[in-house]
Design a protein around this nucleic acid. Structure first.
Lengths: 337, 337
DNA sequence: AATTCTGATCGAAGCGCTTCGATCACATTA
DNA sequence: TAATGTGATCGAAGCGCTTCGATCAGAATT
C-alpha cells in the first residue's frame, strides 16, 4: 500500500497538518520543516491521494467532461483540445458519454458535479435548461461548448456559426449557383439554427428567394443527410449545390449524389462545416467552413480554470471565428459554365 | 448540498449501516426496512457519493484508461468500444493521455492505480515493463490493449498482426507486384514487429527475396511515413506497391506518391492497416487490413470486469482476427498490365 | 521583569461511506 | 422455564486528507 500523509509526518517529525500545508502551500511553514517534509515525501515516494483529498474538501485535480459521443471527429477534435489543455494545467479528465441520449444528461451532470470533479465541461448539451440552473446557483464551475442562447448565465464557447454559414452560401452564390440546398442540423442546437439563418441571410443579400423546399434536416448525421439529399436531388428543380450543417452530413450528401448516378462535384457542388480531418483526406477534398475545434476545447478549459480559481468571476462568452476552406468539392453550376 | 447516507438513515429510521447494506446488497435486510430505505432514497433523490465510497473501501465505479493520444482515429475507435462497454457496465471513465510521452506512463499508472479507479486499461503502452510488475503483484486489475510479448503475466487483447500483414502482402503479390515496400511502425511495439514479420513471411512464401532497402520506419505517423515513402520512391529500383503498418502511414505514403508526380494508385499501389474511418472516406478508397478496433476496446473492458469481480481469475490473452478490405488503392503493376 | 502580541505548529474534528464486531429480540431446544 | 442459538440491525472505527481553532515559544512592548 502506498504511503499516507501520516507516515510522511512521522518521518519528518511534524504533524499531518504541517505536511498538508507544505504540500498545498496553504500556510507558511518554516524553511527547515518544509525541507524535512519534502525530504520525507521524496524518500517515501509519496503522492497525495486525490480521493481522500477530494473528500476532505480539497482539490481533486479532476475535471468532468460530458460529450455526446467519442468517436465522431468533431467531438474527438474538441476533446483533444480539452485534453491537451487540461494536461498542461495538471488536471485529469473524467469522461461521460451520453451516447446521444438526452435523458442521461441530467444524471451525468449530477454525478459529475457531486463527485470528484472540480468543474464541468459540457459539449453540445441537448437539454441544458433542465439541469444547469442548480449548478449555476451553487456556483459550481462549468463551461458549455458549442451551444448557447438557452439561458443568460452559462459561460459558453461557440463559433461564428452565422458568419460561417453566410460565407459558405455566399461562396456558392459567387460560383454562380442559384438553387442552393441546405441540409440542416438538429434543430434543438443553437449552431444548427444559426447556420440556417446565415444561409438564409446570404441568399437574401443576393436577392435569391428562400425556398423551404430546399431545406431538409439531416441531424448532423450521415444517413439522415443522405436521405435528405436524396429528397433534394429528386425535386423537380433540384439544387446545383448543397450546403450542409456539418462535414459528416456532407459525406452523406455525396453518397446520395453518387447513388443518383450524378457526378460529384461536377453536377452538384457540396460544402460542409467543421473541417474535420476526413474533409481534407477525402478525394475530391471537401470544401468546408473550418471551426477551430481544438481551440474551442482549449478555450473552454482555460475559462473553466479561471472560474475554479476565481469563483466570483463574472460570466463570460467566447466566440471563435470560422474560416472558409476552399478545396475541390465546389464547381460553378454546369449550365453557367 | 446533496443528501448523505446519514439523512437517508434518519428518514428511514434505520442505521447508516443498514442503508449501506440495502444499497450494496452486502447483507440481508428485512423487506420492511428495505422498503423504508428505498423510499427515503427516492424521496431525497439520494445518490451514493463515489468519492466517499471509494475512500471507505467500496467500489468507485471508475475505470482508468491510459491512451497515447485521443484524436487519432485508431485510438478513437478503440476508445469508443471501451466507452460503450463501460457505460453498459455502469462504469465511468477516467482518461489519461500520455501525448506519446513515455515518461508519463509510470506516473499515470501509479496515479490511476492508487486513486479512484478499480481497474486500468492500457492502450499501446510503450514501456510496460517499467511499471506493470507491481500492479500485477498487488493483484490490481488491468488489461493491456494492442501490445504483447513484453512479459508473461499481463492480460492482453491484440489483433492477428502477423496474419493481417501476411494477407496484405500476399494480396499485393497476387496482383503481380514483386517490388513491395514496407513502411514499418514504431519498433518498440509488438504490433509493428509482427506486421513486419508477416510481410517477410509472405514474401518468402512467394519466393521473393527480402530486400532491407525496401523497409523504412514510419513510426505509425503521417509525416515520417511520407519521408520514408519518398526514400523508397527515389530508389534506383523503386517499389510498385507499398504496404504500411497503419492507415495513417498510408496517407503519408500517398502524399509522397503525389509529390513525386506519380499517379496513385496506377503507378504505385498502397495498402494500409487498421481500417480507420478515413480509409473508407478517402478517394480512391484505401485498401487495408481491418482490425476490430471497437471490439478490441469492448473485449478489454469485458476482461477487466471479470478480473474485478474475480480477482483470482487466471491471466487471459485474446487475439482478434483481421480482415483484408479490398477497395481502390491497389492495382496490378503497370508493366505487367 | 512582566505582559501582550505574533505567528509557526499542532490536535482533532469531520468529509460520506463501508464493514467488523457487538447487540438484541426472537425462536429453538432440553 | 431456563439455556442456547440464530440472524437482522446497529454502533463505531477508520479510509487519507483538509482545516479550524488551540497552543506555545519567542519577539516586542511597557
Amino acid at each position: 500500500m502506498p504511503p499516507t500523509i501520516k507516515q510522511v509526518a512521522e518521518r519528518a517529525g511534524v504533524s499531518m497538518s504541517t505536511v498538508s500545508h507544505v504540500l498545498n502551500g496553504t500556510h507558511f511553514v518554516s524553511p527547515e520543516l518544509t525541507q524535512r517534509v519534502l525530504n520525507a515525501v521524496q524518500e517515501l515516494d509519496y503522492r497525495l491521494n486525490p480521493v481522500a483529498r477530494s473528500l476532505a474538501g480539497g482539490r481533486s485535480g479532476v475535471i468532468g467532461v460530458m460529450i455526446p459521443e467519442v468517436a465522431v471527429s468533431y467531438s474527438g477534435e474538441i476533446l483533444r483540445g480539452i485534453d491537451e489543455e487540461l494536461a498542461s494545467a495538471g488536471y485529469d479528465l473524467l469522461l461521460h458519454t451520453t451516447h446521444n441520449q438526452r435523458v442521461k444528461e441530467p444524471v451525468f451532470v449530477h454525478t459529475l458535479a457531486h463527485g470528484l470533479t472540480e468543474g464541468l465541461l459540457l459539449l453540445l448539451p441537448s437539454d441544458p435548461n433542465a439541469y444547469l440552473a442548480p449548478l449555476h446557483k451553487k456556483n459550481f464551475p462549468y463551461v458549455v461548448i458549442d451551444h448557447q442562447g438557452f439561458d443568460d448565465f452559462s459561460p459558453t464557447v461557440v463559433s461564428t456559426n452565422w458568419r460561417g454559414a453566410f460565407d459558405a452560401t455566399q461562396y456558392l452564390i459567387e460560383l454562380g449557383h442559384q438553387r442552393i440546398g441546405f441540409v440542416a442540423g438538429a434543430s434543438h442546437t443553437s449552431s444548427a439554427l444559426e447556420r440556417l439563418q446565415g444561409y438564409r441571410a446570404a441568399l437574401q443579400q443576393a436577392g435569391i428567394p428562400f425556398d423551404a423546399e430546399l431545406v431538409r434536416e439531416g441531424y448532423f448525421l450521415r444517413t439522415p443527410s443522405y436521405e435528405a439529399a436524396l429528397h433534394l436531388l429528386d425535386l423537380p428543380d433540384p439544387p446545383t449545390a448543397i450546403f450542409t450543417a456539418n462535414d459528416v452530413s456532407a459525406f452523406g450528401v455525396i453518397d446520395a449524389i453518387h447513388s443518383r448516378g450524378l457526378h460529384f462535384p461536377d453536377d452538384v457542388s457540396v460544402i460542409g462545416f467543421d473541417d474535420i480531418p476526413e474533409a481534407a483526406a477525402a478525394r475530391p477534398a471537401l470544401t468546408t467552413v473550418r471551426q477551430q475545434l481544438v481551440e474551442m476545447g482549449r478555450t473552454a478549459v482555460r475559462m473553466l480554470m479561471e472560474y475554479i480559481t476565481q469563483p466570483e468571476r463574472p460570466m463570460q462568452r467566447v466566440t471563435l471565428g470560422t474560416e472558409l476552406i476552399i478545396r475541390e468539392s465546389c464547381k460553378p453550376p454546369k449550365n453557367s459554365a
